[in-house]
Design a protein around this nucleic acid. Structure first.
Lengths: 199, 199
DNA sequence: AATGAAAACGGACCGCGGTCCGTTTGGCTC
DNA sequence: GAGCCAAACGGACCGCGGTCCGTTTTCATT
């Protein structure tokens, strides 16, 4: 019988077994290498499995699907970006002027999305949103809007601001419509001005 | 030697051969039936080919890919909707008040997108945009914005208005964030008000 | 009607994402 | 350390999207 004094520790429901954790790490590592050496298209589940020295079934057990694996790879880069938004230097990081911060956010988000475009596309539905109720970006924008004294349905307005920066919309504008990045950025800042009512 | 007097007629480069046209029709027909009887997921290229009584290769020859086929099926419904926007009854169709028309457009577009959601997802990148330089919807919104006297980069502003009505964004808001359709619609109208500067 | 070349056809074939299930392994308890 | 069970493993297997290429059909020309 387990000691009842040890039970209330309430660690996570069931931790990951040692071999499982090791394999997860090896797989993520192999996937990252494949992405940067041969591009996203070359990242086959079988290739990743082989590169990590495990069976194909294991990849699926750890990441559910190719999209899940891509999302995990993406998360790696994404986390660094989030950190610079939360605690980096102004104007992107915390600073006195929310408006400047919003502009910096838009520019940074646009760049970051374009850099990881292939990965985001490959991550499918998991490419844009995080695990929690709101994605990090939505929460942040909502917060900035609040700081700017905007009133209205802030979660919805935040989405309206983020939507034109999502990959499907960017793809259309850049590749079908032929707009260039400068124009998109200027347009986005205009949109932000109209939504916030900022001078 | 071909008669030079007949050459300058300049009909379309090369018309579709009779059997090809017949098969295209049969395939589209079969695909539509499969969609409405068994859902989009059941629409396999092989299934469509079998239902139309042709070989699998023919389906690809006519529609390039599954996405292409889906886009063709979608186009069928889409055309009817476009007609009602162009020449239907107000407020969606032509009328005296562009603002009311814009609101009607948003509502109608949202509904239509949700109704065909599965098909649009299956049509991938071809799901949202048309063949020409601008999709029909973008052109229409751009025109309405112009009628309302909005100034700025109208193509970009039109995209900003359409982006929150695209499937990926709707999916996130409806399924991850848990917003309901009423709220999305109210939010969109607010967005339209802010963008146009309408009272 | 005969003919010849371009276009269309069909189905075998390939690669990849995803599943299944018999086998192995890690980490408990005694 | 022995023994047990849940968890993890691995690779054969399946279905589908997409390609390829030898065969058939259409149609313009004569």
């Amino acid at each position: 019988m387990p000691d009842p004094l040890l039970l209330p520790m309430a660690d996570q429901p069931t931790a990951e077994r040692a071999d499982a954790a090791r394999n997860r790490e090896a797989l993520l590592c192999a996937a990252r290498r494949l992405v940067e050496e041969q591009g996203v298209a070359a990242v086959t589940m079988e290739a990743v499995a082989a590169a990590a020295g495990v069976g194909k079934g294991t990849v699926f057990r750890r990441f559910d699907s190719r999209e899940g694996l891509m999302a995990a790879v993406l998360d790696f880069s994404e986390t660094a970006w989030q950190a610079s938004v939360i605690s980096g230097p102004p104007p992107l990081g915390p600073g006195p002027d929310p408006w400047e911060r919003l502009l910096a956010f838009g520019r940074s988000r646009l760049e970051s999305t374009l850099v990881h475009a292939d990965l985001i596309r490959a991550a499918g539905a998991s490419g844009s949103r995080a695990a929690g109720a709101y994605s990090f970006a939505a929460m942040h924008v909502r917060h900035l809007l609040d700081s700017l004294g905007v009133d209205g349905d802030l979660p919805i307005l935040a989405t309206a601001l983020l939507a034109p920066l999502e990959i499907p919309i960017l793809d259309q504008q850049l590749h079908s419509d032929g707009f260039d990045v400068e124009r998109l950025l200027a347009g986005w800042e205009d949109l932000a001005r109209r939504i916030t009512g900022h001078a």
